[in-house]
């Protein structure tokens, strides 16, 4: 009964927390929290933001790999694996998001680990697929073979989720650490790398689209700046200004993830037959689920900034 109440009591708060990474954290500018004794709770919130980031990444992977592997007729049974892995990751990260207990969770850990491994192995599969096509590692096969880098989004989802668990693990402590490193720095590095990689993927496919629309340069230009600023903030945890700059760029990048879906929806409309010809254009037009990866990574970056802030305060 007590548990039930606790859960019910927690739910409204959790729902707010769910909304926060999606909108609040992006739009509102929370002031740097005063240095009080509530760091543990704040750290827990960071963990849940990380779960939110992992959730968005997992959702993007689920939709993207679902669509692309449907296009490939699930020719290889292994094509179902990322669907399963990303679904589990999504479930785990939503669970983590709603979970108030400042403790890591063995099942979630396992799922995140599985996702990361699936991402890595998947990328191997994709590289193998490209290599065996006539032409090998040519531009043509990079464009039309299994998309190299796409499975990395699953690796990132897993890694962000694992980071969330580690942060939560150390929630009681003042400074969460991952692999012996300050969590903020490591996470910042992860998010920055992920943003740069995802940007590179957008660059490849927008190059395939010949940058026919100038807006196609945005996801190539904007996230790398955010990544660089985040890296700088991590390198100088003692200074506030780099963090503030990084925060704004990351918020912009998070918004870009959503705007990208809108642009891609417009792109589908520009294909022959538009949305009426959805059965073709969803697959041949720009991929709807791809851009939100930027949002997921930006959220991870924003969470990293909070940890950096605390690390900076301590340092």
């Amino acid at each position: 009964m007590r548990m039930l109440e606790a859960r019910r009591g927690g739910r409204t708060g959790h729902l707010l927390d769910l909304a926060l990474p999606l909108a609040g954290a992006v739009l509102a500018a929370p002031r740097p929290p005063p240095r009080t004794g509530r760091e543990a709770r704040r750290t827990d919130r960071v963990a849940r933001h990380l779960h939110g980031g992992a959730a968005i990444l997992a959702l993007a992977v689920l939709a993207d790999s679902g669509l692309e592997h449907y296009r490939a007729m699930f020719f290889n049974r292994a094509m179902y694996v990322p669907l399963a892995a990303s679904s589990l990751t999504l479930a785990a990260s939503l669970h983590g998001l709603l979970d108030e207990r400042p403790l890591p969770h063995a099942a979630r850990d396992a799922v995140y680990g599985l996702a990361a491994a699936t991402g890595l192995v998947g990328n191997g599969f994709h590289l193998w697929n490209i290599g065996k096509r006539p032409g090998g590692f040519s531009w043509l096969n990079l464009f039309y073979g299994a998309p190299v880098g796409a499975p990395m989004a699953l690796l990132l989802a897993g890694a962000v989720g694992l980071a969330a668990e580690r942060v939560r693990e150390d929630a009681a402590a003042r400074r969460p650490r991952i692999l012996g490193q300050p969590a903020g720095r490591l996470l910042a590095g992860l998010a920055a790398t992920g943003l740069a990689g995802t940007s590179a993927e957008a660059a490849l496919f927008h190059f395939r689209g010949a940058y026919h629309d100038p807006f196609m340069f945005v996801p190539v230009a904007l996230p790398p700046v955010a990544a660089a600023l985040l890296a700088r903030a991590a390198a100088e945890p003692g200074r506030r200004r780099p963090r503030r700059l990084a925060r704004w760029w990351l918020r912009l990048t998070a918004l870009l993830g959503f705007a990208g879906v809108g642009f891609h929806a417009f792109g589908i409309h520009r294909n022959m037959g538009g949305w009426r010809n959805w059965s073709q254009n969803i697959l041949n037009g720009p991929p709807l689920p791809a851009p939100p990866s930027f949002t997921g990574l930006a959220l991870a970056g924003l969470a990293a900034l909070r940890l950096l802030e605390e690390e900076g305060r301590d340092g």
């Binding site: 296009r71 490939a72 007729m73 020719f75 022959m272 037959g273 009426r276 010809n277 059965s279 073709q280 697959l283 041949n284």
Partner: peptide, 17 residues
Amino acid sequence: ASPRGYVRMGFDRRDPW
């Protein structure tokens, strides 16, 4: 096949239609 053409172009690939 117009406006809808084809999506799957490779060996042993078939669109649902």
